[in-house]
Amino acid sequence: MSFPITRNRRLRTSAALRSIVRETRLTAHDLIYPIFVTEGSGVREEIVSMPGVYHLSIDLLEAEIREVAELGIQAVLLFGVPDHKDEVGSEAYGNNSIVQRATRKIKEWQPDLLVVADTCLCQFTSHGHCGIVRQDESTGRADVDNDASLALLVKTAVSQAQAGADIIAPSNMMDGFVQAIRTGLDDAGFEHVPIMSYSVKYASAFYGPFRDAAHSAPQFGDRKTYQMDPANVREALREAESDVVEGADMLMVKPALAYMDVIRLLKEQFDLPVVAYNVSAEYSMVKAAARQGWLDEKAIVLETLLGMKRAGADIIITYFAKDAARWLQER
């Protein structure tokens, strides 16, 4: 049938009608809010390249956590900023390290709030890479030793679970990391703790502000030998399939905005929940433009997050989570 019998505008004539036929919905329950916890006391330091996002010491963390819970956000993603770094990232897996202490406090303050622990070493290593660095004596070239790094990532995941983390989120992109961490968690009695795998993580230019926030920029080279080439999409399927076989419970695509096609691909190919990470530069670009008055921040953010849901994301990690939750309440 065609015009004039078919008139698609009939279903757009009022806000109520548009709402009742809406295909995709965004709620605060879809969002995870990342938080940067740091050593010290009385620290609430705004991250210059990420307006509205802060380094928080544990003594000032409770107010942030209560605000998150009151807004209806059900999960936070913890990143630790330690005061000590070494070659093997030992502060990542210490029983009394920053993420472990923060996790215990959050579960004390808000037991029902999900704590997602980022499981990586880059914030904790002196060289800023996501594992143990070895130098090839014949070539003089330094690179991350994949298999040796797995043991430390397992130690980190188990220590986070012991501290009370509800979800382990490995972001390191080592081959076999899901299988190693799943085995380690199960052997330690944490078979009930799910893994939110950074399955498809690109070597992206969109991470710049995060590296400022986490103090995690590599001290040499880059991460292109273990993070994915932005040009590749079939490789994303191989990465995700490996994680499914190894025991992942959720599959993440990072970044989100330039990789909507990859989000859709994973949604169509796998039956696990798909997570989109709306990363730091995606956040900072909007904030910078909004401060100049060049765009309507609220409208842009909600449309962008809705687009990620429409592409297939079941869960969105975003620094806009608190703002978005407020705006959704206003609606």
Rank of each mutant, 00 (worst) to 15 (best):
L153N: 08
G140I: 00
A142Y: 01
R25Q: 07
I58Y: 07
V81P: 01
A117S: 15
M196P: 08
H129M: 13
Q160L: 11
G89K: 04
L265V: 08
I35P: 02
D86E: 10
G221P: 04
E137K: 14
R134P: 05
I168R: 14
L305R: 10
L114G: 10
G89F: 03
L251F: 05
F220P: 03
S49K: 14
M308Q: 15
P273T: 08
I167G: 08
E297C: 04
M196H: 08
A321I: 00
A248D: 10
L152P: 06
P273H: 12
F270L: 08
N232D: 12
L265M: 14
I132C: 03
G42M: 09
I98R: 14
E91L: 09
M174T: 02
D86M: 11
M260A: 12
V133P: 04
M174G: 02
L56M: 08
Y207T: 06
Q179E: 15
L272C: 12
Y54S: 09
V116K: 11
D186S: 15
E67M: 00
V81N: 13
P230Q: 01
A15L: 15
A117E: 08
I32E: 08
T6H: 14
T119I: 14
I167F: 08
P273Y: 11
P273N: 13
L153K: 12
R326N: 02
D175R: 14
L251V: 06
A28C: 01
V99D: 10
R66E: 12
L302W: 01
S197R: 02
F190R: 06
S41H: 13
V233M: 14
D222P: 01
V115E: 07
K201P: 01
D143P: 02
L305S: 05
Q100L: 06
S97H: 14
T139K: 13
A217F: 09
R211Q: 06
V200C: 12
H129G: 12
L295S: 09
H129P: 07
